[in-house]
């Protein structure tokens, strides 16, 4: 029997005009697992991700988080339920310091954000959390640097650190390794491996090494539907997947 997932979708559909981007997808993400969604370009991964994050509303079907229906909730409301997300294109507060990027995200979990008289530095817990997350991400030495001036790999780590600062239960990572190579990609992989011990993660990723190495479970999409699901070993052995996706690599 499959345990009921932390995040589920039921017959989730999204069409744009006549094009069906996501077609009746039943997803089941178990708590404390790293669940990767892969598939060729145009398979509907990003649309599915946007439906999970609340960036888009589905045409039909439902999204459930911890057995609560969240289909109609927007990004902000889902954030407060404990769904944190990172973005495919680095999406940070560029002119603010790396520290402030994380600090203001941590502040979003307090009731103090409409306080207008006391300095923000008085929020000691927020400051401590932000510092701990930066330390953990290996960005402590860059805390005072302007976020927009950080190197690409550091920005990707900051991107994830911002999401972590909102104390999520579930982390949605949208192609975190995009644009990274060599050393940076390895650093990111190591970071995600660490995070996977503590968070439930849904990962969209093109980097197959990263997916095969880190995932507990993989869902393969093709033409908007689920083609296969299973452990990395099962996916690797699946002839359908090989043909549709992995095989195309030659």
């Amino acid at each position: 029997m499959t345990p009921v997932g932390m995040l589920r979708t039921e017959k989730l559909c999204k069409s744009f005009g006549g094009t069906v981007a996501v077609d009746s997808v039943d997803l089941n993400v178990r708590a404390a697992s790293l669940h990767a969604i892969i598939g060729p370009n145009g398979a509907g991964k990003t649309t599915l991700f946007n439906l999970l994050a609340g960036e888009m509303r589905p045409t039909s079907g439902g999204v459930f988080f911890e057995d609560r229906e969240i289909t109609r909730l927007d990004v902000r409301e889902r954030s407060h339920l404990g769904i944190g997300r990172s973005f495919q294109r680095t999406n940070i507060f560029r002119a603010l310091s790396a520290y402030e990027n994380v600090r203001v995200a941590a502040q979003s979990r307090t009731q103090a954000s409409f306080a207008m008289w006391e300095p923000a530095t008085r929020l000691r817990d927020v400051a401590a959390r932000a510092q701990a997350i930066l330390d953990d991400a290996g960005l402590a030495a860059l805390a005072v640097r302007t976020a927009g001036e950080l190197a690409g790999g550091d920005q990707r780590l900051l991107e994830i650190a911002i999401a972590l600062a909102t104390a999520p239960k579930l982390l949605l990572l949208d192609e975190p390794s995009q644009g990274l190579s060599g050393e940076d990609a390895l650093r990111l992989m190591a970071r995600i491996r660490t995070l996977a011990e503590r968070y439930t993660i849904v990962l969209i990723e093109h980097n197959m090494n990263l997916v095969m190495e880190l995932s507990d479970e993989i869902t393969v999409m093709n033409f908007g539907s689920i083609l296969a699901r299973g452990t990395p070993a099962e996916i690797r052995a699946d002839p359908q997947v090989r043909e549709a996706y992995l095989g195309s690599r030659g």
Partner: peptide, 19 residues
């Protein structure tokens, strides 16, 4: 204040501030 810090986050990146 905390409020002022949120304003600057919105200035820098409103969609992310919502997220």
């Amino acid at each position: 204040s905390p409020f002022g810090h949120v304003l600057r986050a919105i200035r820098e990146n409103e969609p992310r501030a919502r997220a």
